[in-house]
Design a protein around this nucleic acid. Structure first.
Lengths: 198, 198
DNA sequence: ATGAAACATGAGGGTTTCCTCACATTCTTC
DNA sequence: GAAGAATGTGAGGAAACCCTCATGTTTCAT
């Protein structure tokens, strides 16, 4: 691939992001994306042979950036107390939502274009490593499960955040910090395994 | 409307559920729904003038059943301790997912067909009233916010649940019980309002 | 029984969408 | 500078989908 091609791909992806953000996933058509990128429809199909393909590419890109955003946190985690860690973690996701306008619309793309499990695994492990850095005594499978849970709670906040009136957002963000904080506390406290009655 | 019409509506809705569950939202076509219901396409359009309309109807129906499922819990909440309450709450949602096969696919219908805010408000208030029954000392706005958070955490579990291999499900359910339990505990504990540093 | 209203039918119109393909242009390599 | 690869173009094919409508059947009140 030439450099010109790489640039085109970037342009097309950016156009896809803009169109999807503006029109929603279903209404985002291939020709609209091509037009927005200032390219012919044929060029679009040269690099992305189908709509599912471009969706997946955008999703993968988002996931990469999401992961990259959290990478520094894994190194800092040891020096932060739990409150600070949770606070940073949540603040970062909020920042991510606000800088990635297509994200809410991407959430209703069909299942077939969802990020491959490999990517989700990366994110899950990223969160797990952050948690492990904070609480080294955690068992690794536990940390992984906690990573999954954290990921999904963060996703829930994202979804809620964008559809909330602006003035209620800050409060809801605090609320979710509380959720994660209390969860992490009970999870990493050495405790008598009191089973919940079935 | 005649009784025959009411029956048809029910049949059509049931067919829509089956088709959407089987093929996903995007691939669910109006003709497929009509065929599955053993009705002509014209009959479908008699009662549901558009695809968005049938989606919304199904969504509303789901929300009603969801709410109805939790109604008893609001009355029992006073007699349950927190562990039991959370356990019931989560178990109920899992049961709901398993008995409503179209639910995961409905989650990726376009925003325009999402349940009107009136319905979401009902669900939110239902959860709030359950929480209030459990912890009467809660301020009402707080309970409402907690209701919203709970609703979205439960939704996150639903989403995760269906895409998890069967043998990991039970464990994840327990994990989410822990999340809610610890959240409710810190939220209803009278506490010194220690703000998280910004 | 009869008229009206509710319900049922399915062929087809109109539109849109995804995607192909034959051909033109730019870049790279030798 | 020539050959070949990469990239660019846009008219149009093929298919699918949403929805209409003219017409037929059932139900019901009077």
């Amino acid at each position: 691939m030439q450099e010109r091609g790489a640039r085109r791909v970037a342009e097309l992806l950016q156009a896809a992001e803009a169109v999807i953000a503006g029109a929603g996933y279903e209404a985002a058509t291939m020709s609209a994306i091509a037009e927005r990128a200032g390219a012919a429809i044929g060029s679009l199909y040269q690099f992305f042979p189908s709509k599912a393909c471009i969706t997946q590419a955008l999703r993968t890109e988002y996931a990469k950036q999401f992961d990259a955003m959290y990478a520094p946190l894994a190194k800092m985690a040891g020096t932060l107390n739990r409150e600070e860690l949770v606070s940073h973690l949540i603040d970062l996701t909020v920042e991510f939502v606000e800088t990635h306008p297509a994200l809410p619309a991407m959430l209703d793309a069909p299942r077939s274009t969802r990020a491959p499990s490999a990517i989700r695994k990366v994110l899950q492990e990223r969160f797990a490593s952050i948690l492990l850095a904070q609480s080294p005594r955690l068992a690794k499978p536990t940390a992984l499960r906690m990573g999954t849970v954290t990921l999904h709670i963060v996703k829930a906040l994202n979804q809620l955040y964008v559809e909330l009136p602006r003035r209620e957002r800050a409060q809801m963000v605090e609320e979710f910090k509380m959720v994660l904080l209390s969860y992490f506390k009970t999870r990493s406290a050495p405790r008598a395994r009191k089973k919940v009655r079935p």
